[in-house]
Design a binder for these strands. Structure first.
Lengths: 347, 347
DNA sequence: AGCCCTTAAGCAAGCGCTTTCCTGGAGGAT
DNA sequence: ATCCTCCAGGAAAGCGCTTGCTTAAGGGCT
């Protein structure tokens, strides 16, 4: 098997504890000795065993990242950013997928608890009560949901939804549908609340459809109800649903943005690639992952700091939104000409 | 802190070793005693510490999964399937992203080595020599590349490429371009070899363009050369490039499949969602992940079994391929009518 | 010269668990 | 009754490392 600290100690004529210190507290060992130890270690291919180290220090230098669905395109950028950021700090990342199941979620936290220094919980579906129980076993940071007494990082989708509705009204839309996401999603509540508020102010009639699974299929399935509603614009819970909806509408002969405008949320990579390119609210998922890791690493075991980070979102206007029936009434409608020009290229 | 095996022992009036056996070798302890121990353990919220267990047994019940780029849509389904499959077997998964950097790759394997029971290497960019060195530190399974003396699981993209070209010739295409992927990719070589072979037989003039980065942008950038070449069909290294190419062609006023047919490889989720829906070679990534985990778990430390698994690929015909100029000459062209009907819906 | 302080390194305990070895006692065979 | 066997469970070592305590050696000071 591979070399242990004792092998290195023997080979370099010192005690094991000196080898240990040469690695973990270098200033406590004479530079000359340290050089010798490190050299023989290097030459023997010795690397400290992180498992043994974890057992005695209680710090594993591992983190857990629990998401609802790895294959949902919303998550990979977050995972990627978190992993790379963690690794820069000499932490490794466990990844786990709950398939939206709160039971799996809890069990995962429990079994991971002792082998990580903290867990990032993304859009958890657990009840607050459960979260309160598992947080005793391991430091937690929650992404995409606000949980009292727990450090959280959220993206201001409320702001994004507001901007989206305002963009729509500026284009002259007055009948708008909100394609709601899954029940129990914090994000969903935020979007709904914000959209409602801004609609009331702007004289918009907002119809909420849902709840729906956050999938392309659910979006496509909503095409018929949307057409029946007769709205001229739709804000979807996420890009996947928006894309599904556009596709469903296309099948029904309803054209986007000519007949109906559609806005998504998240700005997944896909949204730039489809035609029409999707107007959407960009959420800074990579930054969220990094922020969460920072919080985990800073506060560590301290179970009582409850920092809250809110990240800004931005509306990205592309080609899935266009002028609505009340455009004349709206003085500040943005770029109606370039928009219709672009859309002409579809004919 | 949380309960240890000794706490449970004390509380249930037995020795620590009995508690240990109650969990890890239940048949060695009297059913009655075991029941009592398990009950108090449950009630104290005790869970065996996997780190401590790993230290003494040498098995961590963790696996590593190293991929080139988590955000590349090819990988998430593989990651998801691997994770869920591993977890069913009581294994946790470390995930890591190399950003296509072989140096990162090696370091990752080394630092992970002692805290996992094996590593899945996806499309590694390391040299064979390096792989041979790191395999001494930890059991390895390679996905998407054949490495002598190492267990591997690959997908038969050669077969897929062959079918793709045959599909194209059946549709009456004789001038075809191959949009090559990155240099050093095993998959790329396989595709190229197969496409060349079948072209020679079928009387097709095949032009290879590349190498390219496996990205949408690279695909879009190839639109101009493709048009200049005057080919009527293109096989791309992967779906991302195919989608980029379609987009680039669209911008140039070249229509798919009317003017040029395009086939991708991988069948990422995206390919079903774009218009035209992409004809592509589906690669069974989820199955590949599961197969790799099986191999890792079966062979374990055994450094000398070198099973090779080859998974079948299948051509999925959608809407990005259509009849070519020599269609009349091809007796067996598939579904030319339904195809043109479908494509009519784009007008 | 004697003292104290600092620095460097050795010693040994122990993190939470598994596992080998050993002991005690129950049961069966002779 | 004696011996052997078998089973359940205790005792203790130890996985590879860190760390508090201790010792030894050197150096500066009075």
């Amino acid at each position: 098997m591979s070399a242990t600290i004792r092998d290195v100690a023997r080979a370099s004529g010192v005690h094991a504890s000196t080898v240990s210190r040469a690695f973990s507290t270098p200033h406590m060992v004479n530079p000359e000795t340290r050089g010798r130890v490190l050299a023989t270690a290097e030459q023997m291919g010795y690397r400290p065993n992180r498992v043994a180290r974890a057992l005695i220090t209680g710090r594993t230098h591992n983190l857990g990242l629990i998401v609802a669905d790895i294959a949902n395109p919303f998550f990979p950028p977050l995972i990627k950013a978190s992993e790379s950021y963690a690794r820069q700090r000499d932490y490794h990342l466990f990844i786990a997928d709950t398939d939206e199941d709160p039971v799996v979620e809890e069990d995962l936290v429990q079994t991971l608890a002792k082998q990580v220094d903290g867990v990032l919980l993304c859009s958890p579906r657990m009840s607050n009560g459960l979260i309160d129980r598992v947080r005793r076993d391991v430091p937690l940071v929650v992404i995409n949901r606000v949980v009292a007494g727990l450090p959280t990082v959220v993206m201001d989708v409320g702001q994004g939804a507001r901007e989206a509705i305002e963009h729509l009204t500026a284009l002259g839309h007055r009948d708008i549908a909100l394609l709601a996401g899954p029940r129990g999603s914090w994000t969903n509540r935020e979007i709904r609340r914000a959209a409602n508020a801004v609609s009331r102010v702007g004289g918009v009639r907002l119809t909420v459809l849902g709840p729906h699974a956050p999938t392309e299929r659910a979006g496509a399935g909503a095409a018929v109800p949307i057409r029946r509603l007769g709205v001229t614009a739709v804000l979807a819970y996420n890009d996947l649903m928006a894309i599904g909806l556009i596709d469903g509408l296309f099948t029904l002969g309803v054209r986007v943005p000519d007949d109906v405008s559609v806005i998504g949320i998240d700005d997944i990579g896909l949204s730039r690639m489809i035609r029409p390119r999707l107007t959407t609210v960009a959420t800074p998922t990579a930054a969220a992952g990094r922020a969460a890791i920072d919080m985990l690493l800073q506060h560590g075991d301290d179970r009582h700091t409850t920092a809250h980070v809110t990240l800004q979102t931005t509306l990205v206007v592309r080609d899935s939104t266009g002028p609505g029936p009340y455009l004349a009434a709206a003085a500040d409608a943005s770029r109606p000409l370039s928009r219709s020009a672009r859309h002409a290229s579809f004919a």
